[in-house]
């Protein structure tokens, strides 16, 4: 039986697995580009949480590799979200919609 407390790695891993699953679900089933973008952010946050958790529980305390990686992830995720929103805005300006099915013109 799993016992969840802030002092156990399992708790963090469980949360990040749920985040990851939610992210994959959103990224694969959402037809709205904003929904897909939210799914992506969940994926990245799941990884960042996992880096920080593993960093605290597995690696030695003097070596903050995991925590450093988590900070990098947060920064890059912000840049990516900004760029993705700019792209969605560009699409919205030309088609007045961000539904991936309705805006689709590129096909063979």
């Amino acid at each position: 039986m799993l016992e969840f407390s802030p002092d156990r790695l399992d708790a963090y891993l469980a949360i990040s697995t749920v985040l990851f699953a939610a992210g994959v679900l959103a990224a694969t089933t959402r037809r709205n580009a904003i929904g897909l973008l939210i799914g992506l952010e969940l994926l990245l946050n799941a990884a960042a949480l996992q880096f920080a958790a593993y960093g605290r529980f597995r690696a030695s305390a003097t070596d903050p590799q995991g925590q450093t990686a988590a900070v990098f992830v947060i920064v890059v995720a912000a840049a990516e979200a900004a760029l993705a929103l700019a792209m969605l805005f560009a699409v919205y300006k030309t088609t007045r919609d961000v539904d991936l099915e309705k805006t689709r013109e590129l096909r063979s």
Partner: peptide, 14 residues
């Protein structure tokens, strides 16, 4: 081009 950029950034992010 806008649609291509949107697809690229979403799939690339995933």
């Amino acid at each position: 081009a806008a649609e291509a950029g949107m697809k690229f950034v979403l799939f690339g992010g995933a």
